[in-house]
Design a binder for these strands. Structure first.
Lengths: 272, 272
DNA sequence: CCAAAAGTGTTGCTAGTACACCCATGA
DNA sequence: TCATGGGTGTACTAGCAACACTTTTGG
């Protein structure tokens, strides 16, 4: 941590803190930005596909452009509300202003971006979070927001093989690209795919998560066996689904997420 | 990013920025902390083992305690020096005040910590970096530093199987634990082990990196074959080392790092 | 010569892939 | 009863661990 100080030096720690001036340094703003991913039905009957929550900025800078939801970290209690105890709290607060968040969700820190000039107002350091959740409700607009929507990754060029087009405000294209890549690789060696599903699901739905995030079809029979052979990934509820597919078919078993966080062995997307 | 603003609203972006007051928000300090890891000979003839660079704080708060080297990000040009263009620049600047940094090194962002109360002076958000480097020179003290040293991870309880003892200032025990775990898992699926070695090395030295970081012995013959079978991991220089081991032995071939960043297939530490 | 370290050959096991096939259900 | 999707059986194959063995060097 810091080795420079804000004015006072020497003496005991109490008197040091009493003489410390928090405004002695050049101001830096800290924000959190959230890449909230969910899997929901696509626009044109393409089946389920990954979507990200975007907001259209109603204020400067970058007014009118789409961006990841975000906001300043509240360092102290303010008239707008209490201080954020920790960065994840700030991320959830920012997000809950845009959409309803039922638990449990998976929230994880992605990376922090702090290059000079990335925000024209002042030096801004943004801590990005990745949120993975089952089909969330339609978002509502918040303060300073013109519009909020779930946008398919495909439309943003973050689909499979697609080049990321420059479309979002600030450096959010890069943040989103990092988020998508993180989600893709986390599916390989953790049981996080279940974070995109409701509490109870079928193996085929789980495979659907992998297929839509990785963007390629998997061998249904082998996937089935591999999941069941991975200890702690899923847990049999003993129930069957109400009915099979639309065009008939056996009623699949229902599973819930198991206790394991990491998968041994991993499901590798590289090997075809 | 931010949806709140610093005072002005409406109008075009230029007039908005002119009326913007960067001091309107509660002050937050941003620091970078670096967990610099290197592999060097241990204290008691134990062979080479991983070390971390620590400094003993000469100033409040936490004066006298060991900590990871760190410092405030310079948001603007100051009498002490120019602003940091980006967070990695700040990390390298902070580190170069403590020890000589020959290139190339591997620097990667670890995580950001911003809980309330982690620093008594004010709200501090710390961006932690992981640096992996070949045997670096002895550190020198910097401003506000009583002492600086390479400390074996084993002594800090971050060795294999050891519980991390609370020893470092602030929450640096946790940061270091995260750094060590990141380094261990990165060896599995990237070619980063070469970051701990000089430009030219032998397969046995490469195996020594894995063994000292993972804390267990690997099968020499199979390791050898596996490395050579992994495309792009190492590149034959065509040269042999000057001499074999101390007690005799064949002269090993010399290799340099190959172009591949990720390994297919990975070297898994889980499988014995 | 002997010990030590580098490097190769070979074999058996395990885990993943592909493909065939049976089961249960809706229309 | 046929199409659809769930689920199982089984052969094939690639990759890995184990171990034996050869090569090259220092003392």
């Amino acid at each position: 941590m810091a080795t420079e100080d804000g004015g006072a030096a020497g003496g005991d720690e109490g008197s040091f803190l009493a003489g410390y001036d928090p405004h002695a340094f050049a101001p830096v703003a800290v924000t959190v930005d959230v890449a909230a991913l969910t899997i929901r039905p696509g626009t044109a009957g393409r089946g389920r596909e990954p979507h990200v929550l975007l907001v259209r900025r109603g204020e400067h800078p970058q007014r009118g452009r789409w961006a990841l939801p975000g906001g300043f970290v509240r360092a102290e209690d303010t008239p707008q509300g209490p201080a954020d105890d920790d960065l994840p709290d700030a991320a959830l607060r920012v997000l809950s202003e845009k959409t309803l968040l039922p638990g449990p969700l998976h929230l994880e820190q992605l990376a922090t971006y702090g290059a000079r000039g990335r925000d024209p107002r002042m030096r801004v350091v943004s801590v990005a979070y990745l949120l993975m959740a089952p089909d969330l409700p339609e978002p509502h607009r918040g303060r300073g927001i013109e519009e909020a929507a779930w946008v398919p990754l495909r439309e943003l060029g973050h689909g499979i093989g697609g080049r990321s087009r420059h479309a979002l405000a600030f450096d959010h294209d890069r943040v989103l690209a990092d988020a998508v890549e993180r989600a893709r690789s986390k599916l390989e060696y953790t049981s996080l795919a279940t974070a995109f599903l409701p509490p109870v699901f079928t193996i085929t739905e789980l495979r659907g998560v992998y297929e839509s995030v990785w963007g390629r079809e998997l061998h249904a029979a082998n996937f089935h066996r591999k999941i069941l052979a991975t200890p702690g990934f899923v847990e049999d509820t003993g129930e069957l689904a109400e009915r099979g597919g639309t065009g008939g078919g056996r009623r699949p078993r229902l599973y819930r997420a198991g206790g394991a966080a990491t998968l041994h062995p991993p499901l590798l997307r590289s090997t075809q």
